[in-house]
Design a binder for these strands. Structure first.
Lengths: 125, 125
DNA sequence: AAATACCTTACAGTATACTCTAATCCACGC
DNA sequence: GCGTGGATTAGAGTATACTGTAAGGTATTT
């Protein structure tokens, strides 16, 4: 059970962002103490970690919100949610493959620099 | 030698963005015809591809601009430019590793869905 | 009880990277 | 020679995801 400051420090997510996520309805499981202050526990930590794994792999907040809304509707949305995860997994894998392709271009550029350092001095990008 | 429309279609980058990149000084090698219209050739294509490989791997335009400015200064900046590429390569590789870690979380979630489909029906995120 | 340190809310501001609008210009076909 | 379709420019607008501010509340410490 941590306060917003503690939870922010534990997770590396700023209090602003934590409140923002909650306001937008994508961070569930946040409790309150008697005076209205936020309390974060294991449940909110799990949610946050899940949200972060979607966010950090490029899912926009609007789509994460859709997922969370489906979750709140209950078991009847299980299939849809699974499909969302499958689609997202596909996109992430495609994106990683693409990134690795672009990385090759960067490596090629680095090879040119090495080549140039060995005395070959034509100017290159 | 293509006009902005043709080049846009060839590369998939909108005319707006092509002009924007040029205005910001990150797309070099764009020529003009006698009446002032842009002409794109092999040189501009090479630049664009290079820029895109940086952009698509997450380098902000401001940093790409820095690189291009160094390039324009000539050979004296070779070492700096190489270092920028090395740093970026490191970041991209780190980011890919991180993404794959987050992908595992997503795969775990998918495994839970599979598990649930086989009759186990506790509600899960 | 005053100071402090944190919290709350609503809402405004910022950063990045486009994306579009408005006004104008230019070349080709009829 | 005039309309049509493209081009040009400067500058405004948009989207997303935060990030910060203002005004005030609460609780502990001195």
């Amino acid at each position: 059970m941590s306060t917003i400051k503690g939870f922010s420090e534990e997770t590396g997510i700023s209090p602003y962002t934590l409140r923002y996520y909650e306001r937008e309805g994508i961070l569930l499981g946040v409790k309150r103490d008697p005076s209205g202050n936020r309390l974060y526990d294991e449940e909110s930590l799990e949610w946050l970690n899940f949200i972060l794994s979607l966010r950090m792999t490029g899912m926009p907040l609007s789509e994460i919100k859709q997922y969370v809304d489906l979750y709140k509707e209950g078991e009847s949305t299980l299939r849809k949610r699974k499909q969302m995860m499958l689609d997202h997994k596909g996109k992430v894998e495609k994106n990683v493959a693409e990134t690795l392709k672009y990385l090759e271009t960067i490596n090629y550029k680095l090879a040119l620099y090495d080549f140039q350092e060995k005395g070959f001095t034509k100017m290159l990008p």
